[in-house]
Amino acid sequence: MLVEAVRAAGSEAGWTSLITDVWDFIKEALAFFGEGQGLGPMRHRLEAKL
């Protein structure tokens, strides 16, 4: 319900997109926002431990 409220408020405010950050290792969040809310990847950040 919260995501839908944000979408509605953003649309009314003239936003053109909804963006959120999700860690790759949190599979539940990826599934919730990706499959559940229709968000898709827009970039990937890669890291190497030194």
Rank of each mutant, 00 (worst) to 15 (best):
M1Q: 13
M1V: 14
M1S: 14
M1I: 07
V3K: 00
V3C: 07
V3A: 06
V6R: 05
V6W: 06
V6L: 14
V6Q: 03
V6E: 10
R7A: 03
R7H: 02
R7V: 00
A8R: 09
A8C: 07
A9E: 15
A9H: 09
G10W: 06
S11L: 09
E12V: 03
A13V: 07
A13C: 10
A13N: 08
G14P: 00
G14R: 00
G14A: 00
W15L: 04
W15S: 13
W15A: 13
W15V: 06
W15Y: 15
T16I: 09
T16V: 12
S17P: 01
S17F: 02
S17A: 09
L18F: 13
L18I: 01
L18W: 11
L18N: 00
L18V: 02
I19V: 14
I19Q: 08
T20E: 01
T20K: 08
T20I: 12
T20N: 10
T20R: 10
T20P: 05
D21K: 01
D21W: 08
W23K: 13
W23F: 14
W23D: 15
W23R: 04
D24Y: 14
D24M: 07
D24I: 11
D24K: 09
D24A: 13
F25T: 01
F25M: 06
F25K: 06
F25A: 05
I26A: 15
I26E: 14
I26K: 12
I26T: 11
I26R: 13
K27Q: 06
K27E: 15
K27G: 12
K27P: 03
E28Q: 14
E28K: 06
E28G: 11
E28L: 05
E28D: 15
A29T: 05
A29F: 02
L30S: 12
L30H: 03
L30A: 05
A31K: 11
A31T: 12
A31S: 14
F32L: 08
F32K: 04
F33P: 06
F33A: 02
F33K: 01
F33Y: 15
F33V: 02
F33I: 02
F33D: 01
G34Y: 09
G34W: 04
G34V: 02
G34C: 06
E35V: 13
E35N: 09
G36W: 04
G36L: 04
G36M: 01
Q37M: 02
Q37I: 03
Q37V: 02
Q37N: 15
Q37L: 01
G38S: 04
G38Q: 03
G38Y: 02
L39F: 11
L39P: 06
L39G: 03
L39K: 01
L39M: 15
G40T: 07
G40K: 13
G40I: 05
G40V: 12
P41E: 12
P41K: 14
M42G: 08
M42K: 13
M42V: 07
R43I: 06
R43E: 12
R43H: 11
H44K: 07
H44F: 01
H44G: 02
R45H: 15
R45S: 10
R45P: 01
R45A: 12
R45W: 00
L46W: 12
L46Q: 04
L46D: 02
L46I: 03
L46F: 07
L46M: 07
E47F: 15
E47T: 11
E47S: 15
E47G: 09
A48I: 08
A48C: 10
A48K: 15
K49A: 10
K49P: 14
K49H: 11
L50N: 13
L50D: 03
L50M: 06
L50W: 02
L50C: 11
